[in-house]
Write a protein that binds this DNA or RNA. Structure first.
Length: 889
RNA sequence: GGGGCCAUAGCUCAGCUGGCAGAGCGCCGGUUUUGCAUACCGGAGGUCAGGGGUUCGACUCCCCUUGGCUCCA
């Protein structure tokens, strides 16, 4: 049975039994305590925790999950995968054990023809928690399972909690006996490899208290409303139903694995090591594809880093397999998209974007490896030169930590060169880094933002009603007053406060549009200046500001009014953003998708995906097209509809963005149509003018254009126009000829500078012959001292000294001292020939003698040295000092 | 969130404890006339990311800014 069919049957079975089918949530969890969704129940957590009321009492889903804790186990065992899908059915205060157990049994054991999975009842085993007699009774009496196939297990295996105070309870797990070939008799307690866990039923029965660890907490009592949460691993089920030994050989992962084998020329089953690599590649390519599809981009932190690690591990394993450095990710990603596309059609729709992200990372990693290889070779050479055969752990760590060069590659390359690696030191350094990061995270107490105070407000007061599409002010009731993260109920003059209202004209920052500013006033009692508005959780508007006067208390009736000038200006920016988006797509094709934006008053930023920079002509074209649309004065229309309908109408949605069921479409007739919750102008003519400032890079594959809108655009244009006018006047050239004129000037200037340089050098060197001819003899050393004309540069002095030294030859020791004052400080240069150096006259030392006289210091090599000081009057004395020094030797 | 590193010619990078800014490839010119990057000779090309500081002197040391790479959480 194919994976997609298993999922379909599961959902159909529970739908038939009164469950609402809930589509898989994005892997990017809404829950700020989680990086990625790692279990089937995550999207339902607020319901289980009582933070929100579920819109249904029975639900079922197939949830995408990513788990990276045992990423190192992937490929080595038959079950670990970084990406998997959880089938589950959920009950919120509806049925409990007496419902969940028979449902599971029926679906597993009813025949394939009847829509079930067709398991042989005689090969099924279950476990229940130590004292859960209730569950055992249901299994025996309602299901009819023999008592000898029901086993009891302790808290570690069969008791569930979320690790925090809240619901907890016993579990019952269902196992399938794969037969004697897979291990010992005796049920799951004896051998979990032979008896494979297929389904875990969690009974949320009790409330637990504060406590550390998995088993160390008190049970406070029974929950008033009991819930069911079950989980069946789709991949594992597929392996069983497809009669294969491990999940990598199922229909979906198997396709990627076979293609990887083909591409690298390695046969699966050849040897354990390459098999592990092939399984890692299959797993990781799929995980990466799913993550990218949900909008994750490779990066250096958080989810981006998880993705980067997964991608780099697969690329690394591909290189191990093929033994060369060819690129295979594109091909494999295509297979993954195809293999998963039946279940997740959006993969096919977004294939281009997924490819471009993964291909870019593959190239990026190839660069990292190339640079790292060069660094490794240098370090290895250093090691060998020092006579050691051990590559230091510090070097290995630096390669890894600073340059991203994988340790396994270091080990391998070191072995090739006959070097050992000090792995112990390496691991110590890794450990130290981990501890430092943890210590820091703890000290900052960050990472897990506390949103419970907002969740409670949303729970009691419901979502905020947004009036701002039509109103700029209105009456509202205060539902929450938060100071310093706590619901205090009151805020007084000077307090930084967060206010939650039942309805508001304030737009909260989202979709790139900045929040409104304005005031919230309590009649005759107080005023709050609103500086920012955010939605910390979906649907809840939080107004942040300062109490300017008086006080504000929960339940107050207030008058909320936004700064309408600011709003109008931000709206103009937002409308302009849509126009620029359309113009870019017209110019570059549909691959120029939006990757982020920011709409400030009078100014906007638009990020889009593109592999190459826009040239000046393309920018000009986009700008012109946008301004033409302004002149057409297109009316902006809005409609509210379902997500599906909007997409059918061709509205642009943002890649990787999450949308609710009801969406708002902003429409500028034939020119632009986008899903957007932001505010806009009434007609495009109100924008006045859009001036693109330029284009730049944000990161790999993402470009940014920035533009000014309205009066800000006009001001920019007019100041630049004035600037050009001024230049034209200064250069006495018509505007159009300015670039050529400047080019010509720069070229002439350069030529002139070179000519001056040449002439000056010639002039300086003119005296060289004469100086050499007049060299004096001091104690067997030929000595030339010379003071250059003021203004002679240090560089020219050096040239002169070297020239004169050359003319003096090597027949006898020779020392040349040149000093002068290039600007306001004296400089001295000393050159000594080989003979002089042999007899102990080193330029570096001689220059020191002169420089000290000048009130400074100096140094250099034995053959040529340079120094200087601050006393310009002492130049002659300095020259004499060197002569004396020579005479003494 | 906490670290490490990098920015030098069109590209890839060297440049040691401060003292002459370099190589390979590419480009231009010449000779050679070609077995898969033909060889040889010559040449052009630089605000050493930007700003400040220390110093007689900074590509080099220190600080700041900008951009990039990378590890850990």
């Amino acid at each position: 049975m194919e994976t997609a069919e298993i999922a379909r049957r599961f959902l159909a079975f529970f739908e038939k039994n009164g469950h609402t089918v809930v589509p898989s949530a994005s892997l990017v969890a809404e829950d700020p305590t989680l990086l990625l969704v790692n279990a089937g129940m995550v999207p339902f957590k607020p319901y289980f925790l009582g933070q929100r009321t579920p819109p249904y009492t029975r639900a079922t889903s197939v949830q995408k999950c990513v788990r990276t804790i045992d990423i190192d186990e992937v490929g080595k065992t038959s079950r670990h995968a970084s990406f998997f899908q959880m089938l589950g059915n959920f009950s919120f205060g509806d049925y409990f054990k007496e419902g969940a157990i028979p449902f599971a049994w029926e679906l597993l054991t009813s025949s394939v023809a009847d829509g079930g999975f067709g398991f042989d009842p005689d090969r099924m085993w279950v476990t229940v928690y130590l004292d859960d007699d209730e569950a055992e009774t249901i299994w025996r009496e309602k299901v009819g399972l023999p008592a000898d196939r029901i086993q009891r297990r302790g808290k570690a295996d069969n008791f569930w909690s979320m690790g925090v105070p809240g619901p907890c309870g016993p579990c019952s797990e269902i196992y399938f006996d794969r037969g004697p070939a897979y291990g010992a008799e005796g049920g799951p307690v004896a051998d979990e490899n032979r008896y494979l866990e297929v389904w875990n039923l969690v009974f949320m029965q009790f409330e637990r208290g504060e406590g550390s660890g998995k088993e160390d907490y008190p049970i406070l009592g029974e929950l008033p409303s009991k819930n069911i949460d079950t989980g069946m691993g789709l991949e594992r089920m597929a392996a069983i139903l497809q009669g294969v030994d491990n999940i990598y050989e199922t229909d979906t992962l198997g396709r990627i694995l076979r293609r990887a084998a083909e591409l690298t020329g390695v046969a699966y089953g050849d040897n354990e090591r390459s098999d592990v690599s092939l399984r890692v590649v299959a797993d990781h390519v799929r995980t990466a594809t799913m993550l990218v599809a949900d909008g994750v981009k490779p990066g250096n932190e958080k989810r981006g880093y998880v993705l980067r690690r997964i991608l780099r591990r697969s690329i690394r394993n591909l290189r191990l397999l093929s033994g060369d450095e060819s690129f295979h990710m594109h091909d494999l990603t295509a297979v993954a998209i195809d293999a998963m596309g039946d279940q997740y059609p959006e993969l096919r729709a977004d294939a281009d974007k997924i490819h471009s992200v993964i291909d870019a990372e593959e190239k990026n990693f190839a660069d990292t490896l190339r640079a790292g290889t060069a660094l490794f070779n240098r370090a290895a050479e250093r090691t060998r030169r020092s006579g050691s055969t051990e590559f230091s752990g510090a070097d290995a760590f630096q390669l890894h930590d600073t340059y991203g060069f994988p340790i396994d590659l270091t080990l391998e390359m070191a072995a090739e060169q006959g070097l050992k690696v000090d792995e112990e030191t390496f691991h110590q350094l890794m450990q130290r880094q981990r501890e430092a990061a943890k210590r820091d995270a703890k000290a900052k107490k960050l990472g897990n933002a506390d949103i419970s105070v907002y969740a409670r407000l949303l729970e009691t007061g419901g979502p905020t009603d947004f009036l701002g599409y039509t109103e700029s002010e209105g009456e509202a009731r205060v539902l929450g007053v938060i100071v310093n993260g706590e619901a205090t109920g009151v805020a007084r003059k000077g307090d930084k406060v967060e206010l939650v209202l039942d309805r508001t004209p304030f737009y909260a920052e989202s979709g790139g549009q900045l929040a409104d500013k304005g005031t919230i006033a309590v009649d005759g009692r107080g005023v709050v200046d609103v500086e920012d508005v955010q939605k910390p959780i979906k649907g809840l508007f939080v107004h942040r500001g300062t109490v300017r006067d008086g006080e504000v208390v929960v339940d107050d009736t207030v008058h909320a009014a936004i700064d309408t000038d600011r709003r109008a200006s931000v709206s103009r920016s937002h409308s302009a953003t849509h126009l620029i988006h359309s113009a870019l797509r017209n110019a570059l094709g549909p691959s120029a998708g939006q990757a982020g934006s920011e709409n400030q008053p009078g100014r906007l930023r638009f990020d889009f995906t593109s592999n190459k920079p826009l040239d000046a002509a393309e920018i000009a074209h986009v700008e012109e097209e946008v301004n033409e649309v302004l002149a057409r004065n297109i009316e902006v229309q809005y409609m509210e509809t379902t997500l599906d309908k909007a997409l059918q109408m061709g509205a642009l949605a943002m890649f990787g963005e999450k949308y609710g069921e009801r969406v708002r479409v902003v429409d500028m007739t034939d020119y632009s149509r986008e899903l957007c919750g932001g505010t806009h102008v009434g007609a495009t003519g109100q924008l006045g003018l859009v001036k693109v400032l330029g284009e730049s890079s944000v990161g790999a594959g993402v470009r940014r254009v920035e533009a000014l809108v309205g009066l800000d655009a006009l001001r920019r244009v007019s100041t630049e126009s004035a600037l050009v006018g001024q230049l034209s006047e200064q250069l006495k050239a018509p505007r159009e000829e300015l670039p050529q004129r400047i080019d010509a000037m720069v070229a002439r200037l350069r030529a002139a500078e070179k000519e001056i340089e040449r002439l000056r050098a010639a002039q300086v060197l003119q005296v060289a012959g004469e100086l050499a001819a007049n060299a004096r003899e001091i104690g067997g050393v030929r000595v030339v001292t010379h003071r250059t004309a003021d203004g002679t540069t240090a560089d020219d002095m050096r040239k002169l000294a070297l020239d004169v030294r050359g003319r003096l030859g090597e027949s006898a020791p020779a020392v040349v001292v040149v000093a002068g004052v290039p600007a306001d400080r004296p400089v001295v240069v000393v050159a000594a020939n080989k003979e002089a150096q042999h007899s102990g006259l080193k330029a570096g030392e001689l220059v020191g003698v002169a420089a000290r006289v000048l009130g400074g210091g100096g140094g250099g090599r034995p053959d040529i040295a340079q120094g200087g000081g601050s006393d310009a009057a002492a130049v002659e004395t300095a020259l004499q000092a060197v002569e004396q020094r020579v005479a003494q030797s």
